[in-house]
């Protein structure tokens, strides 16, 4: 991935220099530098925070709450759990596999994954807030609140998939 960006940056930089001159390249570098200075400290704090959250939230507790026969209450717990699950996919997917193993239904798992995708607090703090600001984040969150529930309820019509 790093190599991809190196190549993309080199190619785009060269093209920019050829089309609009070196001044455009310096300008773009400066604005990128500003963004880097702003974003990197946030990313550092957020990752430390997420590591603590991960250490404090044992998987067994979530699995107990979202297991078989969780029902409506389960859908809402799934939304909350998805929003607060720290860490990337290496954290969320083992949890869903665990949930399936203890008998959680497809709607619960889909609600959880959708909540984690659209409401995930960690991604919001590390990425969205520094890049897009508070106003945008609040608007997107309000709009996204019903989405996990809609996904979960729609999934009820699809039937249970076979166990993998």
């Amino acid at each position: 991935m790093t190599v991809f960006f190196l190549l993309l940056g080199a190619a785009a930089g060269a093209l920019l220099a050829e089309r609009q001159g070196l001044e455009a390249v310096t300008g773009a570098l400066l604005s990128a530098g500003e963004l880097i200075a702003l974003v990197i400290p946030l990313v550092i704090i957020a990752i430390v925070m997420a590591a603590y959250a991960q250490a404090l939230l044992p998987r067994e507790i979530v699995e107990r709450w979202l297991g078989r026969d969780a029902g409506w209450r389960g859908l809402f717990i799934a939304i909350g759990a998805g929003a607060v699950t720290p860490g990337g996919p290496f954290m969320a997917f083992p949890l869903v596999v665990g949930l399936r193993a203890v008998g959680a239904s497809l709607p619960i798992c889909i609600t959880y994954l959708t909540a984690w995708s659209v409401l995930g607090i960690q991604r919001i703090l590390i990425w969205e807030l520094p890049f897009f600001g508070v106003d945008f984040v609040v608007l997107r969150l309000v709009i996204s609140l019903p989405l996990p529930l809609i996904a979960g309820i729609t999934a009820q019509w699809l039937g249970e998939p076979g166990r993998h």
Binding site: G9, V25, L29
Partner: peptide, 11 residues
């Protein structure tokens, strides 16, 4: 990775 990505994106 992040600084490189941001520079590339800026270009």
């Amino acid at each position: 990775r992040l600084p490189i990505a941001l520079i590339a994106a800026s270009f």
